[in-house]
Design a protein around this nucleic acid. Structure first.
Lengths: 302, 302
DNA sequence: CCAGATCCATGCCGCCAGGTTATAGCCGCA
DNA sequence: TGCGGCTATAACCTGGCGGCATGGATCTGG
């Protein structure tokens, strides 16, 4: 008798949400799909897991037992797979580094070089992540260490070492009414449509909409993008404007887009992150040390 | 990222067998299917689990880690599901009883009645099992307790309480050359084709072929069946003869088949079995006690 | 009493993943 | 040089999952 972990995840979601419809949207599947899957799980186990009613799904006794213990089991499985990945990488002397957009800017190659000196024989594998994954794959165990922008959801569960901060500028389409201004006050664009990250990015998305720095004003979202190129296209095509690290003017310069300094909005914090599970991992520690040494305390990367 | 436990079972099998082809036949799938699944697992994890060679598949370091820890995890999952099933049944006051063919013969209804007196409000659910499952579903957690015939594979892992034993007779098609004999010596039919259980039944199958009581002579198998009706049909149609409990003459009498006493072969042992996981389960214990009281030490059920 | 909202269940359809068989490639061995 | 172990690849079939649209039941408010 076989079982897909998807079924278990579905089940847990339904048990937690209490209704199929809410669980379905949380899982990004349709409600009928969930209906069928939960029924199938019940059929597979030969156990009634929920009692249905118009008010939702309430777990039976067996359902509660399962709901209580399944998450731990899934976590065990996840940990095991993660460990297997880590073993393989250590064996191959590969360190996977996740990053978002321009990572640590001009410092990035120096960090890699420094790490190469400290750990000869090791290879660094850089993996760019979409904004839907603002931990750059660290939370999923896809990478060993990540160059990220703070804050992002889930960072409490990780070890964060801040590196430097840089001002934020604003990216505009070339023909924009403010495109010729030397500097823009953030409040001038409060009512402009913004190009935003996907909702999953949570606090990270809000940070780049500066949602907390608009004096309570609501945000207008003109487009939602998940990757630098989509983001650039959306701006160039006039769907909206966006905050960007000052360094974007160098790393993401392209025709049809201009970057302008903006006042009245906080800077962006760059950090290196690693998993607590790697606390004992000397290679990861070395990489973090290299980051601090090269891009550390001085604010040389503005 | 989702994962089917089937993938893990496949993986474990390959790791244990050392070659795809052997693992494939143990898993009853084709070798290409396994090839694809293992590759898929590797793709899913992003980890190389085996190094291929013409001599077989040898696990990598990551593969060894996974192979060592996966069985435990699968067992945990299995235990959890089993527990959920058990909770549901206890809540519904249902005791599932698995059995093979005629179970404890004439004693069966008395056992059920006695249990009904001892546990009013409880309902007994009888589930007949095929011979491919000689623990009658107990090993799979499908039932709480089982009326079985000894020996069967996997019985060491269960709690067995012997009840009684009965002689074995032989079942023949009506037109058989020995059909009119009052009693048959087992050695007279050593060379006859026998109707056997499926190979998975292991020791149980051998027991009913009396493989160990043929003085080393090989067994001729004329047909393989998995259920009483198939078995009866196979005999009636002349594919072979078979040993049967003496009680079969009463429970499985039908035109075209005759049962005759046989000498020179051991009797059949009936027992009630339960899982060690239910050691603390008073209801199961009660059922076992009822079995012993009704069908216990005296050999009244021959 | 009816309209609307909010649940879950059902029917239909397209698609992919997993299975099968047949075959190719690779090597060691008699 | 052909045979017998392996694993890999190709072509095909099917069952199940997911999506959409809709049905049916039950509260809620005007």
């Amino acid at each position: 008798m076989d079982l897909d972990t998807r079924l278990l995840r579905y089940f847990v979601a339904v048990a937690e949400e209490g209704t199929l419809t809410r669980a379905a949207e949380r899982l990004y599947v349709s409600q009928p799909a969930l209906t069928k899957q939960i029924r199938q799980l019940e059929r597979l186990l030969g156990v009634r897991l929920f009692t249905r009613s118009r008010t939702g799904m309430t777990p039976t006794e067996a359902g509660r037992l399962l709901a209580a213990r399944t998450p731990g089991l899934l976590a065990d499985l996840d940990g095991l797979l993660r460990e297997a990945r880590s073993v393989e990488r250590r064996g191959a002397r590969v360190l996977r580094v996740g990053f978002l957009a321009s990572a640590a800017n001009e410092a990035t190659p120096h960090i890699i070089a420094e790490f190469g000196r400290r750990r000869p024989g090791w290879r660094v594998e850089m993996r760019q992540a979409p904004w839907s994954n603002p931990s750059a794959g660290l939370a999923d165990g896809d990478v060993d260490v990540a160059l990220v922008r703070l804050p992002f959801p889930g960072q409490e569960a990780l070890r964060i070492t801040p590196l430097f901060s840089e001002p934020r500028w604003i990216a505009l389409p070339a023909g924009h009414r403010l495109a010729d201004r030397a500097e823009i006050a953030f409040r001038e664009v409060w009512d402009e449509p913004f190009v935003a990250a996907v909702p999953e990015a949570g606090a990270w998305r809000d940070e780049w909409l500066a949602a907390a720095e608009r004096d309570g004003r609501p945000v207008r979202v003109g487009a939602v993008t998940d990757l630098p190129d989509d983001w650039l296209n959306a701006i160039a095509n006039g769907f909206g404007i966006a905050l960007a690290p000052a360094s974007a003017a160098r790393f993401y310069a392209r025709p049809g887009i201009v970057y302008r300094p903006v006042s009245g909005v906080s800077g962006s914090e760059v950090a290196v992150a690693r998993s607590p599970a790697d606390d004992g991992n000397a290679v990861v520690r070395d990489f973090v040390r290299c980051c601090v040494r090269v891009a550390g305390p001085r604010q040389d990367a503005g």
